[in-house]
């Protein structure tokens, strides 16, 4: 539980600014707001679907800012050629959700 989050503070700041630019309501972004952002990555939809599965940790169909950071982290890593894992590795679980 003391593992450092893989999302580094610099990255978190970048992801948070994207999150805020998308107009969160009550600190949450709906799937409809996040979907076009992820589609912009040009990654295959089945990959993006898995990214969503892994990042919507409470499965409420919305992403809060930590969940959104997980999604963005996975998208950026996928664009660098790293495979998207089938399940969320513990270091990727936001400290607020452990």
């Amino acid at each position: 539980a003391d593992l450092p989050w893989v999302v580094k503070p610099e990255e978190k700041m970048k992801f948070d600014s994207i999150f805020d630019s998308l107009g969160p309501v009550g600190g949450m972004l709906s799937g409809e707001k996040v979907k076009p952002v992820l589609l912009n990555s040009k990654l295959p939809v089945d990959i993006l679907g898995r990214v969503w599965e892994l990042s919507d940790i409470d499965r409420d169909g919305m992403l809060d800012r930590d969940e959104f950071s997980v999604a963005m982290y996975l998208v950026y890593r996928a664009l660098e050629g790293e495979p998207v894992p089938m399940s969320l590795p513990p270091p990727l679980v936001p400290p607020s959700k452990r």
Partner: peptide, 13 residues
């Protein structure tokens, strides 16, 4: 509330 796709909470399914 949920995007098209029935009861799924995943907008990509």
């Amino acid at each position: 509330q949920y995007p098209a796709g029935g009861s799924s909470t995943n907008p990509f399914l």
